[in-house]
Design a protein around this nucleic acid. Structure first.
Ligand SMILES: [Mn+2]
Ligand SMILES: [Mn+2]
Ligand SMILES: [Zn+2]
Ligand SMILES: [Zn+2]
Lengths: 135, 135
DNA sequence: ACAATTATTGCAACACTGTTGCAAATATAC
DNA sequence: GTATATTTGCAACAGTGTTGCAATAATTGT
């Protein structure tokens, strides 16, 4: 997947910062925080990075990943996300050793029985443990 | 449940602030943030409240509840938590209308098939939707 | 009831995260 | 290449969470 192409597909101008952010996330292979990006791209202004992440989330390029620390993390969306609508209903796994969080794209979040009167519109499942590389 | 008693059970001194925090959470019936407590107990110092929450979590009085916003929330533990060990393996529900997050104590987090090499030690499930009161 | 001991609190100071307004720069379309 | 609309960088700010240290208050024992 090519960064300029992704930007074009979402009606966003292709700038160096945006391409760099996308390429960084593609190479990472794990969910990244604002701070991760800031370290990887020290030439970019922090505010611009915050706005870049917000824009990418709005446009369906990135989705937020819940974390047990209280810092937001982001990962690449599937192809069916866009224009304010996300469809990233998969579980995430955070390794307690390497601290990496990855999308388990093939693991969908199971339905559970809710108390009467409750209805579900979305869900987040974060599994913690040890990943393959750290086992 | 009596606040002084809870504190005694966990080898903590019974102070006004601690009793007030516990009573506030008992009355709330939903997961609370530091800010919620700060508003409810304006006479208490913010730093003291942060330390109180950290202490309660360590001692097994409160457990953290994952939230989609990046502010930490806390709810009362079951009776089997204590001394650094938590056993709060239930799902949580956040209502998108009233913004309240509650423990679904009776809903345990289902096992899911993990990729080979991955092992699970704990999990967090946050379900979003509409609660009974807001339906 | 009192003093000694130890835990808790309040304050100041700080680092980090995230937001907004505005002017300068730059990507795209003509 | 120029015009236009978007994006960027900077400054300034509000909120969250942490640490060190001195003052205070809860327990323990006499
Ligand atoms: Mn994901
Ligand atoms: Mn809970
Ligand atoms: Zn790992
Ligand atoms: Zn509700």
């Amino acid at each position: 997947m090519d960064a300029s192409k992704i930007l074009g597909n979402h009606q966003l101008r292709s700038t160096a910062i945006r391409r760099n952010v996308i390429e960084f996330i593609l190479n990472e292979g794990a969910a990244v925080s604002h701070q991760d990006i800031e370290k990887a791209l020290p030439q970019a202004d922090r505010v611009t990075l915050y706005r870049t992440l917000a824009t990418f989330e709005e446009k369906g390029i990135l989705h937020q990943v819940l974390d047990d620390e209280s810092v937001k993390k982001y990962a690449l969306c599937g192809t069916d996300c866009g224009g304010g609508h996300h469809h990233d209903d998969h579980a995430h796994f955070k390794c307690e050793k390497c601290e990496e969080t990855v999308c388990l794209d093939e693991v969908s979040i199971p339905a559970v029985g809710l108390p009467v009167g409750y209805s579900r519109t979305s869900a987040n499942l974060l599994i913690m443990g040890t990943c393959r590389a750290c086992a």
